[in-house]
Amino acid sequence: MSATNHVTLEFPAIAQNVEFARVAVACFASQIDSFTMEEIDDIKLIVSEAVSNVVLHGYDSPGGLVRVHAVIEGNVLTITVEDTGRGIADVEQARQPAFTTSPDRMGMGFTIMEALSDDLDVSSRPGAGVRVIMKKAPRMAGSEEHERRS
Protein backbone atom coordinates (compact mmCIF):
# COMPACT_ATOMS: atom_id res chain seq x y z
CA MET A 1 0.00 0.00 0.00
CA SER A 2 1.45 3.36 -0.96
CA ALA A 3 -1.44 5.74 -0.34
CA THR A 4 -0.93 8.91 1.64
CA ASN A 5 -3.54 10.13 4.06
CA HIS A 6 -3.69 12.37 7.10
CA VAL A 7 -6.00 13.55 9.85
CA THR A 8 -5.81 16.34 12.43
CA LEU A 9 -7.73 16.47 15.70
CA GLU A 10 -7.80 19.40 18.09
CA PHE A 11 -9.60 19.29 21.42
CA PRO A 12 -9.47 20.62 25.00
CA ALA A 13 -6.94 18.91 27.29
CA ILE A 14 -9.50 17.16 29.49
CA ALA A 15 -9.63 13.55 30.69
CA GLN A 16 -12.78 12.61 28.76
CA ASN A 17 -10.98 13.24 25.47
CA VAL A 18 -8.18 10.72 26.05
CA GLU A 19 -10.37 7.76 25.03
CA PHE A 20 -11.71 9.66 22.03
CA ALA A 21 -8.18 10.44 20.81
CA ARG A 22 -6.83 6.89 21.10
CA VAL A 23 -9.89 5.31 19.47
CA ALA A 24 -9.90 7.86 16.63
CA VAL A 25 -6.20 7.36 15.88
CA ALA A 26 -6.53 3.55 16.13
CA CYS A 27 -9.41 3.69 13.66
CA PHE A 28 -7.36 5.83 11.27
CA ALA A 29 -4.35 3.51 11.68
CA SER A 30 -6.42 0.51 10.68
CA GLN A 31 -6.32 1.85 7.10
CA ILE A 32 -2.88 0.21 7.09
CA ASP A 33 -4.38 -3.24 6.84
CA SER A 34 -1.25 -5.19 7.71
CA PHE A 35 -1.26 -3.87 11.29
CA THR A 36 -2.17 -6.74 13.64
CA MET A 37 -4.72 -6.35 16.45
CA GLU A 38 -1.82 -6.24 18.88
CA GLU A 39 -0.18 -3.40 16.96
CA ILE A 40 -3.46 -1.47 16.89
CA ASP A 41 -3.62 -1.93 20.69
CA ASP A 42 -0.04 -0.59 20.92
CA ILE A 43 -1.11 2.48 18.93
CA LYS A 44 -4.06 3.05 21.29
CA LEU A 45 -1.72 2.87 24.24
CA ILE A 46 0.96 5.25 22.98
CA VAL A 47 -1.67 7.82 21.95
CA SER A 48 -3.30 7.45 25.36
CA GLU A 49 0.05 8.10 27.08
CA ALA A 50 0.93 11.16 25.01
CA VAL A 51 -2.52 12.75 25.29
CA SER A 52 -2.82 11.93 29.02
CA ASN A 53 0.48 13.71 29.57
CA VAL A 54 -0.91 16.90 28.08
CA VAL A 55 -4.05 16.67 30.23
CA LEU A 56 -2.01 15.96 33.37
CA HIS A 57 1.11 18.05 32.94
CA GLY A 58 0.63 20.37 29.98
CA TYR A 59 -1.16 23.42 31.30
CA ASP A 60 -1.17 25.49 34.46
CA SER A 61 -4.72 26.70 33.84
CA PRO A 62 -7.80 25.16 32.18
CA GLY A 63 -8.63 25.77 28.53
CA GLY A 64 -5.44 24.42 26.93
CA LEU A 65 -5.64 22.41 23.73
CA VAL A 66 -4.19 19.14 22.44
CA ARG A 67 -3.42 18.80 18.75
CA VAL A 68 -3.05 15.30 17.32
CA HIS A 69 -1.88 14.85 13.77
CA ALA A 70 -1.64 11.41 12.18
CA VAL A 71 -0.16 10.67 8.77
CA ILE A 72 -0.02 7.49 6.73
CA GLU A 73 2.75 7.37 4.15
CA GLY A 74 3.02 3.96 2.54
CA ASN A 75 3.07 1.54 5.46
CA VAL A 76 4.29 4.03 8.05
CA LEU A 77 2.04 5.77 10.56
CA THR A 78 3.41 8.98 12.09
CA ILE A 79 1.56 10.42 15.08
CA THR A 80 2.30 13.90 16.42
CA VAL A 81 0.84 15.04 19.76
CA GLU A 82 1.42 18.71 20.62
CA ASP A 83 0.49 21.26 23.22
CA THR A 84 1.37 24.89 23.84
CA GLY A 85 1.69 24.59 27.60
CA ARG A 86 4.45 24.90 30.15
CA GLY A 87 6.87 22.56 28.38
CA ILE A 88 9.55 20.28 29.81
CA ALA A 89 12.81 21.81 31.08
CA ASP A 90 14.88 18.61 30.78
CA VAL A 91 13.49 16.19 28.19
CA GLU A 92 16.22 13.60 28.69
CA GLN A 93 15.42 13.39 32.39
CA ALA A 94 11.65 13.27 31.73
CA ARG A 95 12.15 10.27 29.43
CA GLN A 96 13.93 8.19 32.09
CA PRO A 97 11.91 5.20 33.37
CA ALA A 98 10.18 6.03 36.67
CA PHE A 99 10.86 9.77 36.41
CA THR A 100 7.74 11.71 37.34
CA THR A 101 6.87 15.08 38.79
CA SER A 102 3.62 13.63 40.27
CA PRO A 103 4.21 11.52 43.40
CA ASP A 104 1.17 9.27 42.80
CA ARG A 105 2.21 8.26 39.27
CA MET A 106 4.69 5.65 38.03
CA GLY A 107 6.57 7.83 35.54
CA MET A 108 6.27 5.15 32.84
CA GLY A 109 4.45 7.04 30.05
CA PHE A 110 7.51 7.90 27.95
CA THR A 111 9.00 4.45 28.59
CA ILE A 112 5.84 2.84 27.19
CA MET A 113 5.79 5.20 24.17
CA GLU A 114 9.42 4.35 23.47
CA ALA A 115 8.94 0.59 23.83
CA LEU A 116 5.85 0.34 21.62
CA SER A 117 6.73 2.76 18.83
CA ASP A 118 9.48 2.27 16.24
CA ASP A 119 10.74 5.78 16.89
CA LEU A 120 9.97 8.39 19.56
CA ASP A 121 11.02 12.02 19.34
CA VAL A 122 10.24 14.46 22.14
CA SER A 123 11.01 18.14 21.81
CA SER A 124 10.11 21.04 24.04
CA ARG A 125 10.79 24.65 24.73
CA PRO A 126 9.95 25.59 28.31
CA GLY A 127 6.93 27.87 28.27
CA ALA A 128 6.07 26.96 24.68
CA GLY A 129 4.82 23.38 24.96
CA VAL A 130 5.82 19.85 24.02
CA ARG A 131 5.82 17.97 20.74
CA VAL A 132 5.88 14.16 20.73
CA ILE A 133 6.37 12.37 17.39
CA MET A 134 5.91 8.60 17.22
CA LYS A 135 6.32 6.34 14.21
CA LYS A 136 4.97 2.85 13.76
CA ALA A 137 4.90 0.42 10.86
CA PRO A 138 3.60 -3.17 10.74
CA ARG A 139 6.37 -5.46 11.88
CA MET A 140 5.56 -8.27 9.47
CA ALA A 141 4.20 -6.31 6.52
CA GLY A 142 3.88 -8.48 3.46
CA SER A 143 4.51 -11.80 5.19
CA GLU A 144 2.26 -14.68 4.20
CA GLU A 145 2.16 -16.07 7.72
CA HIS A 146 1.25 -12.68 9.07
CA GLU A 147 -1.91 -12.87 11.12
CA ARG A 148 -4.15 -10.30 9.50
CA ARG A 149 -7.14 -8.62 11.03
CA SER A 150 -9.53 -9.48 8.23
Binding site: D41, K44, L45, S48, E49, S52, D104, R105, M106, M108, G109, I112
Partner: peptide, 9 residues
Amino acid sequence: TFIDSSGLG
Protein backbone atom coordinates in the same frame (compact mmCIF):
# COMPACT_ATOMS: atom_id res chain seq x y z
CA THR B 1 -10.10 -4.30 27.72
CA PHE B 2 -7.60 -1.44 28.01
CA ILE B 3 -5.20 -0.08 30.60
CA ASP B 4 -2.54 2.63 30.46
CA SER B 5 -0.14 4.22 32.96
CA SER B 6 -2.98 6.10 34.70
CA GLY B 7 -4.66 2.75 35.39
CA LEU B 8 -1.37 1.27 36.63
CA GLY B 9 -0.88 4.24 38.96
